[in-house]
Simulated assay, not measured.
Amino acid sequence: MRCLGLIVLLLFAGPAWSQTIVASVEPLAKLLRSLYGPEVEVVTLLQANQNPHQLALSPRQVMQVRDADLLVWLGAGVEAPLAPLVARRNRPSVALLEQPTVERREGEHAHHEHGHEHDHPDHSDAHHNASLDPHLWLSIKNMQLLAQAVANAMPGGLLQGQPEVWLQQADATRVTLRQQLAPHGNTDWLSYHHPWGYFSETMGLAEPVQVSVQLDAGPGSRRFVALAEEIRDRELHCMIVEPEARVNMLERLCPECQAVALDPLGRDQPSLHYLPWLNTLGEGFARCLQARG
């Protein structure tokens, strides 16, 4: 009976994690799960039901940031609410923006979209990066830099051959996706915001017609009518719809467009590691761009 009780206890016991890494957003966690073995727990700080544009941490999330063996985040320039918590940590942290050769893109209204307000005088770095596109994880090169930095910061628990194996796989994925999307490089497409800048630049895609930049009024405005006419004249047939997009407005602007829903944060596919998830983005773009109304 004692043996049976021990077996039952083992069956219901959780995994014996020896270290915990907290990633600020899901794409960073997807990378980390590719690199580390089962003895390392990877936790995503931003939950699927939280608004990434207005980040407010719960007491439990504050404790996760404090207690993590390693914290992996984007950096104060785009995640200003985390900066004071990171500064109080006495354990290692890795910020993507602090990597020397990180790729940065300018993104209009990026500062506003991610809820990092201008009334925080102590966050001078955030103010300096007010126009920085925060979707840094959609650059494969950036994620390769992060993989190496994380492995250097916490080598314990890495899977055999990592991060070198993953870095090679990332190179191959970039080549494959560029080849897949090459026929659509000059195809126009529609997006409400434009969180895809790093991805589209890496893959050689055209810049989208960005609705949020052109419209600051409702459907009855002259700008709306002019934009709808531009979309018809350019014969757009593809719109990429992120979760925060105003779908009804997009559908009125381009009723003939094929709509493909993709989440730049990967919240809809939590089980996928980073490179397989990137492949699903490539497949979604290819399906949309090759469609005809």
Rank of each mutant, 00 (worst) to 15 (best):
L4D: 09
I7L: 15
I7H: 13
V8G: 10
V8M: 13
W17N: 03
S18D: 05
S18C: 09
Q19M: 05
V25F: 04
A29R: 08
A29C: 06
L31W: 05
G37T: 12
P38H: 09
P38V: 05
V40R: 11
V40W: 08
N51A: 06
A56D: 14
A56E: 14
P59T: 00
R60V: 03
R60P: 00
V62H: 00
V62A: 01
M63H: 10
M63C: 01
D67K: 14
L70V: 07
W73N: 13
V78T: 08
E79Q: 08
A83L: 01
P84Q: 03
V86N: 02
R88V: 06
R89H: 09
R89S: 11
P92Y: 02
A95V: 01
L96Y: 00
L96P: 00
L97F: 01
V102Y: 11
E106L: 14
E113A: 09
G115C: 02
D122L: 15
A126D: 04
A130T: 11
S131Y: 12
L132E: 04
L136V: 14
W137Q: 11
Q148E: 14
A149I: 04
A151P: 14
L158E: 00
G161I: 01
Q162L: 02
E164C: 04
V165K: 15
V165C: 04
W166R: 09
W166C: 09
W166T: 07
Q168G: 13
A170S: 12
D171W: 13
T173Q: 15
A182W: 11
D188Y: 13
Y192C: 06
H193G: 12
W196G: 03
G197Y: 02
S200N: 12
A206I: 00
E207L: 12
V209M: 12
Q210T: 15
V213C: 11
P219K: 06
P219R: 09
S221I: 05
R222E: 13
F224P: 07
A228R: 15
R232M: 03
R232S: 13
R234M: 08
L236D: 05
I240F: 10
P243S: 05
M249P: 02
L253T: 03
C254Y: 04
P255V: 01
E256M: 11
C257R: 02
Q258L: 09
D263T: 00
R267Q: 15
D268V: 01
S271F: 11
S271A: 15
P276L: 10
L278F: 13
L278W: 07
L281S: 07
L281H: 08
G282M: 04
F285W: 06
A286I: 04
R287C: 07
A291P: 05
G293P: 15
